[in-house]
Design a binder for these strands. Structure first.
Lengths: 126, 126
DNA sequence: TTAGACCTTAGAGTTAGGTGTAAGTCAATA
DNA sequence: TATTGACTTACACCTAACTCTAAGGTCTAA
């Protein structure tokens, strides 16, 4: 019988507001409703939401995620396009990983530099 | 005689608007002026801007960067606090690197999956 | 000596990505 | 049967981080 929006909010870590907002915006495909008109998510939705979160958390804009999801609705013929979008995004992620690693180093140097300044200061007034 | 805001914008990749905004907000310490009241950046400013960009691009909020910069003005006594802030941020960066790496894998699997679906589709209509 | 390029400030406007509110429906329960 | 709680929609509001505009000052080259 599917999951309520509350359950999905808990499972996904997104707020109910955000889930509704994503559906409105086409970031999520339109979710099935039960007899009362309440949203009724299934496991496929949950999986899609998990992918959407990953895309978002790795810096893909909502508008681009929307485009990706729109392709899902087109079936097999859109697979190459979907794959291309993911590959492009993968390039961004790899670049970000490199940038983050280089910056992690830079921060480490800065931390060491601060520590050495602190020691100098300590040595100056023993 | 220092660098103009235009030069710094070019060197840093930030817009002139953003540089003025950062100064207004206290993200940048107040920049020296020449006789005409025009901003006059030096190499130290440039270095600080580069650090600010790195902090920002690795996800530190403007408000937190501001706090970090405010400590710079307090001199030696604030060094341990500055170091602590950087160390905390470093933890975030390391977490992000791990998350990005795991997601890079997930995307790779997805790409492979899409490729296999494409091949199935091809096989079905030869 | 005026046109153009550069700068200044104060303050308004924009965008992305949510968040919150109001008014109403429905189903289970005291 | 009245209330409680979860849901619905439509729409208004919010925040962060810019981005732009207006009105004006200063310098330089033709």
């Amino acid at each position: 019988m599917g999951y309520s929006i509350k359950t999905i909010a808990q499972k996904s870590g997104l707020s109910q507001y955000t889930l509704r907002y994503y559906e409105r915006e086409g970031v999520l495909p339109v979710v099935a409703r039960d007899v009362n008109g309440n949203r009724c998510f299934d496991d496929e939705d949950l999986e899609l939401i998990s992918l959407i979160c990953c895309l978002k958390d790795t810096g893909m804009a909502i508008a681009d995620i929307k485009q990706f999801i729109a392709l899902s609705k087109e079936g097999v013929s859109a697979l190459p396009d979907q794959r291309r979008l993911l590959q492009e995004h993968k390039v961004h992620i790899d670049e970000k990983i490199k940038f983050f690693q280089s910056f992690a180093q830079k921060v480490d140097h800065k931390i060491a530099y601060f520590a050495s300044l602190e020691n100098e200061a300590k040595a100056a007034r023993p």
